[in-house]
Amino acid sequence: MDETGKELVLALYDYQEKSPREVTMKKGDILTLLNSTNKDWWKVEVKITVNGKTYERQGFVPAAYVKKL
């Protein structure tokens, strides 16, 4: 869990989004888990830094590609 009590997951593999509802992740990324009720796709939040500014983006990743921490 992070400092706000949200559950975290670890990306076990790289994943490139294939639709606007998904998010890209790299092996080793730590993501915030938002919803894991679907056994195949989990909703996560990723933080992306571009030119020194951090953005948060929500989307789905394959559940088999992440592990709860």
Rank of each mutant, 00 (worst) to 15 (best):
M1Y: 08
M1S: 15
M1D: 13
D2H: 13
D2A: 15
D2N: 12
D2R: 02
D2E: 15
D2Y: 03
D2W: 07
E3C: 11
E3D: 15
T4D: 10
T4K: 05
T4H: 13
T4N: 14
T4L: 13
T4I: 11
T4G: 15
T4Y: 11
G5E: 13
G5H: 09
K6V: 12
K6I: 11
K6L: 13
K6R: 13
E7W: 12
E7I: 14
E7V: 09
E7M: 15
E7N: 13
E7L: 12
E7F: 11
E7G: 11
E7D: 09
L8P: 05
L8W: 11
L8V: 08
L8E: 08
V9L: 09
V9T: 02
V9P: 00
V9E: 00
V9A: 09
L10G: 02
L10D: 01
L10A: 06
L10T: 07
L10N: 02
A11N: 01
A11M: 02
A11W: 02
A11P: 02
L12C: 06
L12I: 11
L12H: 02
L12P: 00
L12V: 08
Y13P: 00
Y13I: 09
Y13E: 09
Y13R: 13
Y13C: 10
D14C: 04
D14L: 02
D14Q: 03
D14W: 03
D14M: 03
D14F: 03
Y15N: 01
Y15H: 04
Y15L: 02
Y15M: 01
Y15K: 00
Q16L: 12
Q16S: 13
Q16E: 13
E17Q: 12
E17K: 14
E17M: 15
E17A: 14
E17P: 15
K18P: 04
K18A: 10
K18G: 08
K18L: 09
K18D: 06
S19Q: 07
S19I: 04
P20W: 07
P20D: 12
P20R: 09
R21Y: 14
R21W: 15
E22I: 03
E22H: 06
E22Q: 13
E22K: 04
E22D: 05
V23W: 03
V23S: 02
V23K: 00
V23E: 00
V23R: 00
V23P: 01
T24Q: 04
T24I: 03
M25A: 02
M25N: 01
M25S: 00
M25G: 00
K26V: 09
K26D: 04
K26I: 08
K26H: 09
K26T: 08
K27H: 06
K27N: 04
K27W: 03
K27T: 06
K27E: 08
K27Y: 04
G28F: 04
G28V: 01
G28I: 00
G28N: 06
G28Y: 04
G28W: 05
G28H: 05
G28T: 01
G28L: 02
G28Q: 02
D29M: 10
D29T: 06
D29N: 05
I30G: 01
I30D: 00
I30W: 04
I30A: 02
I30P: 01
I30C: 05
I30S: 02
L31V: 07
L31Q: 01
L31T: 01
L31Y: 09
L31N: 02
L31G: 05
T32E: 07
T32V: 15
T32I: 14
T32P: 15
T32Q: 10
L33H: 01
L33M: 03
L33W: 01
L34S: 02
L34G: 01
L34I: 14
N35S: 14
N35Q: 10
N35I: 06
N35H: 07
S36V: 06
S36R: 08
S36E: 13
S36Y: 07
S36P: 05
S36A: 11
T37M: 09
T37G: 10
T37K: 15
T37Y: 07
T37F: 07
N38T: 06
N38C: 08
N38Q: 09
N38M: 08
N38R: 11
N38Y: 09
N38F: 07
N38E: 11
K39H: 15
K39V: 11
K39W: 06
K39A: 13
K39M: 12
K39T: 12
K39I: 09
D40N: 13
D40L: 14
D40M: 14
W41R: 03
W41D: 01
W41F: 07
W42L: 04
W42V: 06
W42Q: 01
W42H: 02
K43L: 15
K43H: 12
V44I: 05
V44M: 01
V44D: 00
V44R: 00
V44G: 00
E45V: 13
E45A: 15
E45K: 12
E45I: 12
E45Y: 07
E45N: 07
E45G: 12
V46I: 14
V46T: 15
V46P: 02
V46K: 15
V46L: 13
V46S: 09
V46A: 15
V46Y: 08
K47T: 15
K47E: 07
K47Q: 13
K47A: 09
K47M: 10
K47G: 06
I48H: 09
I48L: 15
I48P: 02
I48R: 06
I48Q: 12
T49I: 15
T49Q: 11
V50L: 12
V50S: 10
V50M: 13
V50C: 10
V50I: 12
V50Y: 15
V50Q: 12
V50P: 03
V50N: 08
N51D: 11
N51T: 06
N51H: 10
N51V: 06
G52V: 03
G52F: 07
G52W: 05
G52M: 06
G52N: 09
G52Q: 06
G52E: 06
G52P: 02
K53G: 12
K53S: 14
K53A: 14
K53V: 12
K53Q: 14
K53R: 10
T54S: 11
T54G: 08
T54N: 14
Y55T: 11
Y55N: 09
Y55P: 02
Y55M: 14
Y55Q: 10
E56S: 15
E56H: 15
E56F: 15
E56V: 15
E56K: 15
R57N: 06
R57D: 04
R57S: 05
Q58N: 08
Q58P: 05
Q58K: 09
G59L: 03
G59P: 01
G59N: 00
G59A: 03
G59I: 03
G59E: 01
F60W: 14
F60S: 03
F60P: 00
F60V: 07
V61Q: 00
V61P: 00
V61S: 00
V61I: 06
P62I: 02
P62S: 01
P62E: 01
A63N: 02
A63M: 04
A63P: 04
A63R: 10
A64F: 08
A64E: 12
A64Q: 12
A64G: 13
A64M: 11
A64W: 08
A64V: 09
Y65P: 00
Y65S: 08
V66T: 04
V66C: 10
V66L: 14
V66G: 01
V66H: 01
K67G: 08
K67S: 10
K67R: 13
K68V: 12
K68N: 06
K68R: 13
L69V: 14
L69T: 06
L69W: 09
L69G: 03
L69D: 03
L69H: 05
